[in-house]
């Protein structure tokens, strides 16, 4: 949906434009993939290296996971594109309920 409004009226020009546009986007995808791999490596490394306390490691790797998921959602799943308002609303509502649920089960499950 990002480039549908950019019609010049000439189909071959439009297609050429679109090709370049998606090629450019694909480069971003590869960059975000590299970042994801990099974040994964850091997460694994911070566990493999025994020096840190779990008070540091656990929040740290959770943060890395969250960042990585944002990459997945916004780049790989194109949630940054236009026309994803309803998906965003519903996915984040789901995340809200998810966080409540997990929070409950690590705090008040009673013994």
């Amino acid at each position: 949906m990002t480039n549908q409004q950019l019609n010049s009226g000439n189909p071959s020009v439009d297609i050429e434009y679109r090709r370049r546009k998606s090629a450019e986007e694909m480069r971003y995808q590869v960059v975000s993939f590299s970042l994801m791999i990099f974040l994964t490596l850091i997460a694994f490394a911070s566990v493999a290296i025994k020096g840190f306390t779990s008070w540091f490691t656990v929040p740290f790797i959770l943060l890395l996971a969250a960042v990585q998921v944002v990459f997945q959602l916004f780049y790989f799943m194109h949630m940054s594109h236009k026309g994803h308002e309803a998906p965003q609303l519903f996915l984040f509502s789901g995340v809200f309920v998810a966080i409540l649920t997990v929070l409950t089960f690590v705090t008040i499950v009673w013994w």
Binding site: P87, L91, G94, A98, T101, F105
Partner: peptide
């Protein structure tokens, strides 16, 4: 397209319940 995204929203809470159970 939209229906599938909504389904994924539901899947989020499905997996959250499983994660929560695992953590407990």
């Amino acid at each position: 397209f939209l229906g599938f995204w909504l389904f994924l929203g539901g899947e989020t809470t499905l997996f959250a319940s499983l994660f929560a159970t695992y953590l407990a």
